[in-house]
């Protein structure tokens, strides 16, 4: 749709917000755009958003925001159906883009894991792996983060209305850390920090709050994790797998480095 067509307001884009295995936090971010929510609702026709409205729609969608990782057979079927119904499919958050924290089970045998939580694991309907949406269908854009950043969500929606590319830079957390004037926790305190290899978007939240980044926006394109472990203070081989095995552990190159370090903590039964 061209920007001029959009502005002439022939039809509001039909938007769906759906979720798979997740905590709801990313879709909640839409409701947390308090200042803009009503304006967004005027620009977009939110036809499916079970958490916020009783009206339901099975599609078609101009824009579908997908939260959560794919964890059951039914979710996979539903995802394939939704992809067919959607023009632009955007994954929102670490679960949908990287599998989320629940992807840590991908390193382990599924049965014993389920048995530690459920008395009758045989009744659990669950795939052995929790996987990102892009493993199964084409994804047109992704919003990173656990949770996503409200400003990035607003930027995405604005870009969709205006017809421009969303400004979601692939730069390190460090860049934002420096812009905000925070003192580097690696250099000044020897704190383990994934900032140099993690994509920005959070506003360098953790370093600003005096702790090391734990990678919830996932690896950036040039993530040099090997050098990070070899050359930065605080993050040596002994803590590498623990620190990387977080909310985006299943994303490469984090995944391979975790493999090289014997899997995430607690991977074995």
């Amino acid at each position: 749709m061209s920007p001029t067509a959009r502005r002439s307001g022939r039809r509001r884009p039909r938007v769906g917000v759906v979720k798979f295995a997740s905590c709801d936090g990313c879709q909640l971010t839409l409701l947390d755009l308090e200042d803009d929510l009503l304006a967004i609702a005027e620009r977009f026709d939110i036809v499916e958003f079970p958490e916020a409205t009783s009206r339901r729609s099975a599609g078609p969608f101009d824009v579908l925001l997908v939260e959560g990782s794919i964890s059951t057979e039914e979710q996979l079927e539903e995802l394939l159906r939704l992809r067919r119904e959607s023009t632009t499919l955007v994954t929102i958050g670490a679960c949908a883009t990287a599998g989320g924290i629940q992807a840590l089970r991908n390193w382990s045998e599924h049965g014993p894991w389920a048995a530690t939580v459920y008395p009758r694991p045989e009744l659990i309907e669950s795939l052995a792996m929790a996987t990102p949406v892009a493993d199964h269908v084409t994804v047109d854009a992704e919003l990173r983060g656990c949770p996503i950043d409200p400003q990035q969500l607003l930027e995405l929606l604005t870009a969709l209305v205006v017809g421009r590319r969303p400004q979601l830079p692939d730069e390190s957390v460090c860049a934002e850390c420096k812009r905000r004037g925070a003192t580097c926790v690696v250099v000044s305190q020897g704190t383990a920090c994934l900032g140099p290899v993690t994509r920005t978007g959070c506003g360098a939240l953790c370093p600003v709050y005096g702790r090391g980044c734990y990678g919830c926006f996932g690896p950036r394109n040039d993530a040099n994790v090997v050098s990070l472990i070899a050359n930065t203070a605080g993050l040596d081989d002994s803590v590498a797998s623990t620190r990387l095995a977080g909310f985006t552990a299943w994303a490469e190159p984090f995944r391979s480095v975790i493999d090289d370090h014997g899997g995430p903590p607690g991977a074995k039964p």
């Binding site: 798979f20 295995a21 905590c23 936090g25 959560g68 964890s71 059951t72 979710q75 989320g100 924290i101 629940q102 840590l104 089970r105 894991w113 389920a114 530690t116 939580v117 459920y118 659990i124 669950s126 929790a130 656990c146 734990y214 623990t242 977080g246 909310f247 995430p264 903590p265 607690g266 991977a267």
Partner: peptide, 24 residues
């Protein structure tokens, strides 16, 4: 809601790591 196995996920983690994990 698909199972996410949090009680299993936190095994082997330090208390401070657990705080970040259970928030999710």
């Amino acid at each position: 809601e698909a199972p996410r196995y949090f009680e299993r996920l936190v095994r082997g983690r330090t208390p401070d790591e657990v705080l970040d994990i259970v928030a999710r």
